[in-house]
Deep mutational scan, measured.
Amino acid sequence: DVEPGKFYKGVVTRIEKYGAFINLNEQVRGLLRPRDMISLRAENLNVGDEIIVQAIDVRPEKREIDFKYIP
């Protein structure tokens, strides 16, 4: 289970104008929005990159997770 405030290692699987999709594993995926990329620009991300993200909002009923990148 993903808990708000905890840090996780994930892999960038898709990049859109509104953010990057980060997979923690095959069943868990969330969104890293540009406003939550402190000191990281979306254009510096590539599909396949491994990054550490913090879960900031977890909505299990919608199967949605928002992440924040903190260097």
Rank of each mutant, 00 (worst) to 15 (best):
D57L: 12
E61F: 07
N23I: 10
Y18D: 05
G30C: 09
L45Y: 03
T13A: 07
F7R: 05
D57M: 14
I22L: 03
V53F: 03
S39G: 15
T13Q: 04
M37Q: 06
Y69W: 10
A42K: 15
G10I: 04
K6A: 08
G30I: 11
G10S: 01
A55D: 01
V11S: 03
I56T: 08
E16Y: 11
I38L: 12
E43A: 12
A55V: 15
I56L: 12
V53I: 07
P4H: 06
Y8C: 03
Y18F: 12
D66L: 15
I70V: 14
Q54F: 12
I15T: 02
R29H: 10
V2Y: 08
L32F: 04
P4D: 04
R59E: 03
I15P: 00
E64T: 08
I56Q: 05
R14P: 00
V12D: 00
G19M: 08
F21R: 02
E16F: 13
E3F: 12
N44P: 08
L45A: 01
L24E: 01
A42H: 14
D57C: 14
N25R: 05
V53W: 02
F21C: 08
I52Q: 03
D36P: 04
M37S: 06
V11T: 12
E16D: 11
I65C: 10
I70N: 08
K9F: 09
I56D: 01
L40E: 04
L31Y: 05
R41Q: 11
R33E: 04
L31N: 04
Q54A: 04
Y69Q: 07
G30E: 04
A42N: 10
K6N: 08
I65H: 05
A55H: 02
E16V: 13
E3L: 13
I65N: 04
L40Y: 06
Q27Y: 14
E3K: 14
R35D: 10
F21T: 07
R63K: 14
D66C: 12
I15S: 01
E3Q: 14
L40I: 11
D49Q: 10
R14N: 04
K17F: 10
E16W: 13
K6R: 12
E61M: 08
F67S: 04
D49W: 07
M37P: 03
R63C: 14
D66A: 09
G30Y: 05
Q54M: 15
L24K: 00
I22R: 00
F67K: 02
K17E: 10
P60E: 08
R33L: 09
P4C: 12
L31I: 10
I65F: 07
L24W: 02
V2Q: 02
G48E: 01
D36K: 03
N44L: 13
I65V: 10
V2A: 03
K68S: 09
S39H: 14
A20D: 01
A42I: 15
L24N: 00
K62N: 09
N44E: 15
F67H: 02
N25G: 10
G19V: 07
Q27H: 15
I65T: 02
Y18W: 15
P71I: 09
P71V: 09
E50A: 11
K17H: 12
K9Q: 06
E50L: 14
E64H: 11
Y8H: 01
P4Q: 11
K68G: 11
K6Y: 07
E61S: 10
V28S: 05
I70F: 12
L40A: 06
R35H: 11
R59M: 03
E64W: 15
K68E: 05
N23Y: 12
E26Y: 12
K17R: 12
G10H: 01
I52G: 01
P34W: 15
V2F: 09
R41G: 12
E26P: 14
V12A: 00
R63H: 13
R35L: 09
P60Y: 10
F7Q: 03
R41A: 10
N46Y: 11
I65A: 05
Q54E: 04
N23M: 14
D1K: 14
R63S: 11
V28N: 05
I51S: 00
L24P: 00
Q27T: 15
A55K: 02
L32W: 05
T13W: 06
G19N: 04
K17W: 15
N25F: 08
K68T: 06
D66H: 11
Y8Q: 00
R59H: 05
N23C: 13
P71T: 10
E26Q: 12
V58E: 02
V2H: 04
I38C: 13
V28A: 04
L24C: 07
R33I: 09
K9G: 01
L31T: 06
R35P: 07
L40C: 09
K62P: 05
G48I: 01
G30F: 08
P71S: 13
Q27G: 13
E61I: 08
K62F: 09
V47Y: 03
I65D: 04
L31R: 06
V11M: 07
G48C: 08
N23V: 10
P60Q: 07
I52K: 03
I51Y: 01
N25K: 06
G10L: 05
R59G: 04
G5L: 07
P4F: 08
D57Q: 14
Y18G: 06
E16I: 07
E50H: 13
P60T: 09
R29N: 08
E50R: 12
V12Y: 00
N46P: 00
E50C: 15
P34M: 14
F21L: 10
E43R: 10
D36M: 07
L32M: 05
V47I: 13
G5C: 12
V28P: 02
D36Y: 09
K68C: 11
V12R: 00
Y69N: 02
V2E: 02
I51P: 00
I65R: 02
K62D: 08
R41M: 12
I52P: 01
R29Y: 14
K9R: 13
D49K: 05
D66I: 15
L40N: 06
A20K: 01
N25V: 06
Q27W: 15
Q54C: 12
R35F: 08
D36V: 07
D57I: 10
R59K: 05
P4M: 12
E16C: 14
Y18M: 07
S39P: 15
K6V: 07
I70A: 10
G5S: 03
L24G: 00
F7A: 03
V2T: 03
S39Y: 12
P71R: 12
A20Q: 01
L40K: 05
D66R: 14
P71E: 11
E43Q: 11
V58D: 01
G30T: 03
Y8P: 00
G19C: 10
R35Q: 12
V11R: 10
Q54W: 09
V11W: 12
G19K: 06
I15L: 10
I52D: 02
P4N: 08
D49F: 07
Q54D: 00
M37D: 04
R63Y: 11
P71K: 11
L32R: 02
I52R: 06
L32K: 02
R14S: 10
N46G: 09
L40W: 08
K9T: 08
T13I: 08
D36C: 10
Y18S: 05
D36A: 05
F67P: 02
F7Y: 11
V58F: 06
N25E: 04
Y18V: 08
T13C: 08
I38Y: 09
E16G: 14
V58P: 03
R63E: 10
I51H: 00
V58Q: 02
R59S: 05
I38H: 14
L24D: 01
Q54Y: 12
P34S: 14
P4K: 15
G19T: 06
Y18R: 07
D1L: 15
A20R: 00
R59V: 03
E64N: 07
S39E: 13
D36T: 04
N46A: 14
K9S: 07
V47Q: 01
